[in-house]
Write a protein that binds this DNA or RNA. Structure first.
Lengths: 239, 239
DNA sequence: TGCCATTTGTTCGTATGTATC
DNA sequence: TGATACATACGAACAAATGGC
């Protein structure tokens, strides 16, 4: 199984062997073999299989959970944003169950990019709402929403979970529309990777979006969404 | 220097110690201390300093060269594209000098996603053109273009460098228009990070675009663009 | 050219810590 | 509480790349 005289490093040989092993009898989400089992199977030191597995984790093929085991990673979902839709609608069209969990809500003083984007003077009050978006119970996006407090007032006292778009429409009579998005690739910080339950060596797709209220033409929401890079692909369609 | 009873792992303590060490007396591009020196300085095993350095390499703070040493990484510029949906034009409107370098052109048999996107039967001929886009002599994007050979014929024999869009319009009478793009975050492969002269632990923004010829409504081009994640931000504006 | 010292890379061995079930 | 599995850390040896002589 392992050629000790090959110029290819043993850990890479094992990584490749595991990859073809995965194609042949494992499905996404399955628990994979333990380090001990792999050590015996390939007849190498445990460090060497760890190095091989590390390689595959870096590639997003495997995922590990301390004290539990190593898993076959989930395949990437396609996720499309069309034209002027709100993001939540984009996901919903997928036959999958989408849930939104409230992580935090608080009032902060506007500063930096939030103040700039919402065109607020420094230190004006802003409502920050952090939510976690899940598809079929798998976290895919971590979103920080920012609303000028002068516009939404105390409405968010009641918000507990579910679609923020629907809540805004019903409680605040705000019909939000996306006017611009900025997209970039980044590495997750420890908060991001913890909440998204992802490996910190995998990238995230960061989307910063500015919304106006179509009824009043005021800037009502600035949001920063961090998508799991290994699960989400944005699709942009022109007409 | 190292607290063995701290809940913070030793390798992380060392990583932080190195970071503050760097701020104090090292400049970008400098050769940093060897593993042996660090081993003695911190009084830990070589594996432990390797683990610490690995962490900083992942963060893009240090870079290593086999057989030579460890360097303080160069700082990278932030660079954003503003004001446009059309990617190639978006860059040009910026007051900076944009150059396009031809890396490779060849004829291949269509297969996989290329055949699928261009709606070609398997093994139909496709012209592949790889280019490198630079802004002010800094590489920012690596692009693979695919054209059905039946449509562009031998036109590319003449192409050497410069805007492919202009070349297509003048030489082939093709006016290309983007109809869809898929955007995702990924890690670069070794080719990508070499050509883009970037750290392989930093993410790239991958944009796959399908173009039609507005004159004939035929699918004329499928392209895969790999942007340096640390230099490029896509901006999408709605109307 | 070849050899040598230095430096990073790989692999083995062993022990102990910590999370999960 | 115990068994299992991954995480951290130590020690040793050799391989491979680099640069200088």
């Amino acid at each position: 199984m392992i050629d000790r005289y090959s110029p290819e490093k043993i850990y890479m040989q094992i990584a490749h062997a595991i990859e073809s092993d995965l194609k042949d009898g494992f499905e996404a989400g399955d628990l994979y073999l333990s380090e001990k089992t792999l050590t015996e199977k390939f007849g190498v030191n445990r460090h060497t299989v760890r190095r091989a597995v590390e390689e595959l984790v870096k590639q997003g093929v495997l995922e590990k959970r301390h004290g539990f085991g190593t898993f076959v990673a989930e395949k990437r979902l396609a996720y499309s944003i069309k034209g002027h839709q709100r993001l939540s609608q984009g996901i919903a069209e997928n036959g999958s169950e989408v849930t939104t969990i409230l992580l935090d809500k608080k009032i902060i003083a506007a500063r930096g990019s939030v103040a700039e984007k919402l065109q607020l003077k420094n230190a004006e009050d802003v409502v920050q709402v952090d939510t976690l978006r899940q598809i079929d119970d798998k976290p895919v996006a971590l979103i920080s929403h920012f609303f000028p407090q002068a516009i939404v007032k105390d409405s968010f006292d009641d918000y507990e979970s579910g679609s923020l778009g629907t809540f805004l429409a019903e409680q605040c009579e705000i019909e939000a529309k996306r006017i611009s998005s900025q997209v970039n690739a980044a590495m997750p910080n420890s908060q991001d990777s913890f909440q998204l339950r992802m490996n910190s060596s995998q990238p995230i797709l960061k989307v910063k979006t500015l919304n106006i209220n179509v009824k009043t033409n005021e800037l009502v929401e600035y949001s920063i969404t961090r998508f799991r890079g290994d699960m989400i692909q944005l699709e942009l369609l022109m007409e």
